[in-house]
Design a protein around this nucleic acid. Structure first.
Lengths: 158, 158
DNA sequence: GGTATCACTGATCATTTTGACTAACATGGA
DNA sequence: TCCATGTTAGTCAAAATGATCAGTGATACC
């Protein structure tokens, strides 16, 4: 079942919102909080999970709480013919939390963390040495202006 | 209690890993899976939650599943004297999922989603019109090379 | 050496939740 | 009108929860 195969309705949205703010809330409490029958919520949650609307991982761990207080954006240019190799190598670096391929001049945008600026240097060197990567530019993140959220989106679906 | 006030140990890490891959696993199953007493896991989870190691929100919702299949990185330059205004305005745009302030030439890096390229244009216009923002550059994300993860990090703590 | 503190274990208890079923009811489409 | 689907509201045994407790090692401190 692909993510698009099923259109979420208002009830799904409310369930997702509630789950987002408290992933471990018991189904029964959720049901009475939303004014629904337990069976309904149960069915919906199963469907949401199997349809892929909920990611398998929850991403609730703050890197800072495991000693990675410094985070950075690394943009990398690469030899396109070695794309897959580069991806494989990047995947092996634990400090690489995320990587996307945008259209435009930069080939890869990488989100990385480190314990301190020195460590960040080490991490960015590791990234630079990945096969196929020709050039990197690292910017430390000074402020997390809006931490990742989907709440606003869920609240504003027509 | 600040996030740094308490050093996570191996047990905490294993709990976080398990919770990350299945946020709704019952405490008891978690305990027997990790080979710990239920009370121990219960105590740890309470501490992890109150110490801030676990984010309040789980971020498990895939934007694609709510019809936002297009995502982009928007870099914005701004009039620094209007920073707070810009942030406030950006926060009001539901399609803005995340925003960080990196050191360097770009002042803000914004992660946004949209229903389709046309809609992305609309969203990036909304961003551009935020007070204080002088200039933006939008790059559609062609591929989610490494989706956000903390698993590798948790697995590689010394 | 003795002792206090702390975390973990393994046990209890009543209460709540779960998963897997029903049957009844409403609604909207063929 | 009939049918499929989603919702509600029940049931049931099994399991999990939250709140305890005493016992056992560690570790640190005097």
């Amino acid at each position: 079942m692909t993510p698009e195969s099923y259109q979420l309705d208002d009830t799904d949205r409310r369930i997702l919102l509630a789950l987002d703010e408290d992933p471990r809330v018991p189904t029964m409490m959720l049901a009475q909080r939303l004014g629904l029958a337990r069976g309904t919520v149960q069915t919906r949650m199963e469907r949401l999970a199997s349809s892929g609307a909920l990611r398998p991982n929850s991403s609730r761990v703050k890197p800072a709480s495991v000693g990675r207080g410094v985070s950075a954006v690394v943009s990398a240019e690469l030899d396109q013919s070695h794309l897959e190799e580069a991806i494989a190598a990047l995947s092996l670096i634990p400090e690489v939390l995320e990587c996307v391929a945008p259209a435009g001049d930069t080939d890869l945008l990488i989100r990385a963390v480190a314990t301190d600026p020195d460590d960040l240097y080490r991490v960015s060197e590791e990234i630079r040495l990945c096969p196929g990567i020709t050039r990197t530019s690292t910017s430390m993140i000074l402020r997390d202006v809006i931490p990742y959220r989907t709440t606003a989106l869920l609240n504003n679906l027509s």
